[in-house]
Nucleic acid binder design. Structure first.
Lengths: 146, 146
DNA sequence: ATTTTGTCTACTATCCCTATAAACATAGTA
DNA sequence: TACTATGTTTATAGGGATAGTAGACAAAAT
């Protein structure tokens, strides 16, 4: 798998919203400015994140976006998989794959599974509360560039 | 990163050549049949592998391909990086990347680096001699489907 | 009513993936 | 020499994904 720009923006937007978790909604424009993303593209990303249940929105004059749940309940792995797809390096070890002649005899499969597990062990054990904490630790003249 | 069909064919072709290491050259057609790959596509893959120094070739009537070095000297990581590019999940942690506003302050960078290391620890420590050995262990009515 | 926001649907340019095709070069063999 | 079996090279093409951009629409507050 590969983290695309879309995935990158999604993670940054969520971290941004996690940092402002207690402060209510942020507008797309504000988020875009803070994380340096193209506004119209970020629109789509946020829409997707809403469909995924990661954020919620309010329209109108004082509208905007905010996290839909506690930052501690959102892991990196959840977001990556939702936006950019499976973390597997190759389709043959993804769930419900049935296109291989004889997968059980394949000496590569075992390797791809190991890599998948190693990656999952990392991204599934980091949540946005931890990230916010790390951001705050970095306050050496912190100017908010994620 | 992602293992493409090209990378998949490259790995299978090299394993095939590693299995036939002592037997001299194999033709593209033979390799293609054994690993079940489209011949014309496999041509390009083998050409690339030759440029990468993994295989060597002989033209003409009794021509074909063979490994350019001891299977034990070829790791999965070398092949993957050469055919499919860097194993990093995202460009910002690749070598010589300089497009980020403030990479040292980015809380994500550390995570991408961990994932990269975990993956590298696996693919850089497996060579084709080991794979051949594993293939031979699987001889329960072995029909040669890698 | 107006303004400020989010929502939705298209559209586009570029690149990458996965081949396929055709012409050519080389090295054995008859 | 002529023929054939191989690898070499370049070009091309369809499909899909990526990374946006544009514009009309809907809702909520004032």
């Amino acid at each position: 798998m590969r983290i695309t720009y879309k995935g990158d923006y999604a993670l940054k937007a969520l971290l941004d919203l996690a940092i402002h978790y207690e402060l209510g909604v942020s507008t797309i424009n504000d988020i875009a400015k803070r994380i340096d993303a193209p506004v119209k593209f970020l629109e789509q990303v946020l829409l997707d994140l809403k469909k995924g249940g990661f954020v919620e929105s309010r329209r109108g004059n004082v509208g905007g976006y905010q996290l839909a749940k506690d930052p501690a309940k959102i892991t990196l792995g959840q977001v990556i998989r939702f936006i950019d797809g499976p973390i597997e390096l190759i389709a043959c070890v993804e769930k419900n794959y049935s296109n291989c002649a004889d997968l059980n005899r394949c000496v590569f499969k075992n390797i791809w599974q190991k890599v998948t597990k190693a990656t999952a062990d990392i991204v599934d054990n980091i949540n946005f509360a931890q990230l916010v904490h790390q951001v705050k630790l970095k306050k050496n003249g912190f100017v908010y560039s994620i």
